[in-house]
């Protein structure tokens, strides 16, 4: 047994040493280390293009943004990360508040990213835009019946609404925007009423909400636009059917506009490769990269009007809520607590 164990141990050690060695090789060239929450194919494509163009290696740790931010806090000034990429301004705000991002100035970034889509002090810059809209059954709902998010709280929608869990940050930001528009009490009343109108306890992804509408379980769903793009271009026939059965409605066009949010990134406070990190953000917000985000991941570019994707064009132009996105971040934990109070799981 013992010689057995010994030889086994040797080979394990070799294996793990080999792994460490591989990691070291990776980190020897010009490089940036990226913590990313984004799990999309578009990003992998763009990272490759960036390396090809600049000869800078992109090392990525993917993970949930909140955990990555926690990790940045833990690692402090010794963190190896140069860039944090995440979805939702709420999280970008959280990262800024935690002190893990540093302000950067770049003429190119200022040109690429409109005012409302970036942190006023330059801690983070938006990269893509998504709108949280009402998706309706083409069979059972006329677009004229729909108007605003607030309208979904009315009794006529009882047993007709589906939405995902309040643990999801997209919902938290939506409620944060309603807090910004109407105040805490009205936001709570809204969440309570919408939860009562739901046909089932919230569960599943945004895509599952569209599926529930297509299956006839519900009539309207609250979800992000780009998920419909993914469904419409899915390799699974059933998903393409779902996309065909539902329509997109941009709410609140008569008042503040449809709720939007960004995914974006910033340079970490501990960045050792600051120059390369800025170059990286500039690359991601360049017109060409913005087109890739739209075509591969069906997200709007930060300059919403410059959208090139045919699918996005087919949904029509819309008015976006121009509330400063950092306010959503500030309201975030309040929104979570309101969801708890409203019983929206």
């Amino acid at each position: 047994m013992l010689p057995h164990l010994r030889s086994g141990m040797k080979s394990f050690l070799k294996l793990s040493l080999g792994l460490n060695f591989l990691l070291c090789v990776y980190t020897s060239a010009a490089e940036i280390n990226v913590y990313s929450h984004r799990h999309y194919d578009s990003d992998a494509i763009l990272f490759k293009q960036f390396t090809k163009k600049t000869d800078i290696q992109v090392n990525v740790v993917k993970g949930s943004a909140d955990q990555l931010i926690q990790r940045l806090i833990t690692e402090g000034k010794n963190s190896p990360a140069d860039v944090l990429l995440t979805v939702d301004a709420g999280r970008l705000h959280r990262a800024k508040a935690a002190g893990v991002l540093q302000p950067i100035k770049s003429k190119i970034l200022l040109g690429n990213v409109p005012n409302s889509m970036r942190d006023p002090e330059g801690h983070w810059y938006g990269m893509t835009v998504r709108s949280r809209v009402i998706v309706y059954s083409k069979d059972r709902v006329k677009p004229s019946e729909l108007s605003t998010y607030e309208d979904l709280a009315k009794a006529e929608w009882k047993g007709r609404v589906v939405a995902r869990s309040s643990s999801n940050i997209y919902n938290q930001s939506l409620l944060a925007s309603i807090i910004a528009a109407h105040g805490k009490d009205k936001a709570l009343a809204w969440a309570k009423a919408v939860r009562k109108n739901m046909v089932r306890a919230p569960r599943g992804s945004d895509r599952d909400q569209a599926r529930a509408v297509a299956a006839g379980l519900a009539d309207v769903a609250i979800m992000n636009t780009y998920y419909l793009g993914i469904l419409a271009n899915s390799s699974v026939a059933a998903d393409r059917d779902v996309a065909g059965k539902v329509g997109v409605f941009f709410p609140n066009q008569e008042d503040r506009g449809a709720h939007i949010n960004v995914s974006g990134g910033g340079v970490t406070a501990s960045a050792k490769n600051k120059k390369e990190a800025i170059q990286f953000l500039e690359f991601l917000t360049s017109a060409k990269s913005q087109e890739t985000f739209g075509k591969v991941n069906y997200e709007y570019p930060v300059k919403i009007n410059k959208n090139q994707s045919e699918l996005l064009k087919s949904w029509g132009k819309f008015k976006a809520d121009d509330v400063n996105l950092s306010i959503l971040g500030a309201n975030n934990s309040e929104a979570v607590k309101l969801f708890d109070l409203a019983g929206w799981e």
Binding site: N33, H39, K62, P80, R207, D208, I230
Partner: peptide, 23 residues
């Protein structure tokens, strides 16, 4: 594994989760 893994280090379970997270 999800919380503590190093750079460029993916395992089968994190890959499964990543893909499932993207639905």
């Amino acid at each position: 594994t999800l919380i503590l893994r190093p750079f460029n280090f993916e395992t089968l379970s994190t890959k499964t989760f990543d893909l499932a997270q993207q639905a």
